[in-house]
Design a protein around this nucleic acid. Structure first.
Lengths: 193, 193
DNA sequence: TCCTTTTCTTAACTTAAGTGATCGAATAAG
DNA sequence: CTTATTCGATCACTTAAGTTAAGAAAAGGA
C-alpha cells in the first residue's frame, strides 16, 4: 500500500529511506467507509486527499439536486478549492466506495515543503501536470457532444462506467440521467446494425 | 509595465531590488502583433506565456474548423500542455490583439527555480491556484446550460464579450455561432418584456 | 477608396437534450 | 425476509441546439 505511494512519488523525486519512514510515521493513511462525507458545502476545510484505493466524488447540491462533477480514483489527488482560497466550500466530497486515502492538511504540507525543498518541487510539478491535464479534459468537453463525451469516457476511463451509478455519470457528462440512458440505447442500436 | 508584473508577483513572494533588476535584465518582455501564431499544432515548444497586456487564445482545428477553447488576458498565464508533457501540441496559440507578453521557457524557469527557492514556491502557489480556479470553471460549465454559461460570462468576464469575435466566443461556450446569435436574441427578448 | 473576405444574424428544418411520468429492477433498511 | 427507497430504462412531449443556406454588416487588403 505504501509502495503505491512511493512508486508514484518516484516519478517526480527520489526519496531516501529515512524520508520514507518519516512520511509513514505521520500516520496519513485512512480507511474510509463508502458514503462518508469528507467535505461539506460551507466548510472551510484544510484537508487534501490522495486516493490510494477506491473512489471519491465531488458534487454540488443545486436546487435540491445532486450534481456530480468529478471522480478521483487510484493515484489521483484532490485539493479542494476551499483549501487554496481559504473560503467556504461550494461543494461536497464523499466516498463512493470503501477507500484508503492519504489525508493531509495545509499545515503538514507547508511543514514538509519547508523541511524538504524537493517536496515543494514535487508539488509544483504535480500541480502543473494536473493543470495541463485538466485543460485538455476541459477542451475535449467543450469541443464534443454528449454522445462523443460518453464514447470518449468509454475509451479512456472504462472503469468509471462500471463503478459509478448512471445518474452520477450523467451529470459528470453534463447531461440528465434520462439523456444518458437514451444515448446509450442509441449507441447500442448503431452497434447492432 | 514592469510594475504590473511585480505587483502580481508580490501576492505570492517578496522580491529584493536586486532580484527585480535581475529579472528585468533577462529580456523576457515581448511586443507581439495581432494574429501572430505563438504555438502551432504538432510543435513541441518549451515556451510559456504570461499576458501583461492584450489577449491570446487557444484553439484547435477539428475537421478544418477552428474551435477556440480558452482566452488569456491581463495577468493570466498559459503553460501549454506540450511544455509539461514534452509531447507535440494538440492546439494552436495565437495573439488576438496587439499584446505585450512575458515569454519564458523551461530552461530559464528551471534555472530561476534552482537559484531562488521562493520562485519555486511562487510557481507552486500559482499553479495550485489556477488548478482550483479551473476546477470551479469546469464544474460551472458542466452544471449549466449554454444560456446560463453566456449569462455567467456576461457577469464575470464582460470584457471578453466585447473584445472577442462572436464565433470564437461561441466555441468557447461549447456551442455553434448560430446558436449563440439565437441565444442572445432570446435573452434580449426576455429583457424587453 | 473599392472590392473581397470574414463575421454576424436570421430562417427553416432536423436532431438531440430537457422534462415529467411510469414501471420494473436493484439496493438498502428494518 | 419483507418493505421502502433508489435507480435505470422508456415514452410522450417540449424546448433548444445542430445544420444548411442566404443575406446584411463589418473588417481587411489592394
Amino acid at each position: 500500500m505504501e509502495n503505491l505511494l512511493f512508486d508514484f512519488m518516484s516519478k517526480y523525486i527520489t526519496l531516501t529511506e529515512e524520508e520514507k519512514t518519516a512520511l509513514l510515521s505521520m500516520n496519513l493513511f485512512h480507511s474510509v467507509k463508502k458514503g462518508t462525507v469528507l467535505l461539506k458545502e460551507g466548510q472551510s476545510s484544510k484537508e487534501f486527499f490522495f486516493v490510494i484505493k477506491g473512489c471519491i466524488r465531488v458534487y454540488y447540491i443545486i436546487d435540491g439536486e445532486e450534481k456530480t462533477t468529478a471522480f478521483y480514483t487510484e493515484l489521483e489527488a484532490l485539493t479542494p478549492h476551499c483549501v487554496i482560497t481559504k473560503t467556504p466550500s461550494d461543494y461536497f466530497v464523499s466516498c463512493l466506495e470503501d477507500s484508503i486515502l492519504l489525508i493531509s492538511n495545509t499545515e503538514l504540507t507547508e511543514e514538509a515543503n519547508n523541511k524538504f525543498p524537493k517536496f515543494e518541487l514535487m508539488c509544483r510539478m504535480f500541480s502543473e501536470e494536473l493543470l495541463a491535464k485538466q485543460q485538455i479534459d476541459f477542451d475535449e468537453f467543450k469541443t464534443s457532444s454528449p454522445e462523443q463525451r460518453y464514447l470518449n469516457l468509454l475509451e479512456k476511463r472504462p472503469d468509471l462506467i462500471q463503478r459509478v451509478p448512471q445518474h452520477q455519470l450523467a451529470s459528470f457528462l453534463g447531461i440528465q440521467p434520462q439523456s444518458l440512458s437514451r444515448l446509450r440505447a442509441r449507441i447500442m442500436e448503431k452497434k447492432g446494425r
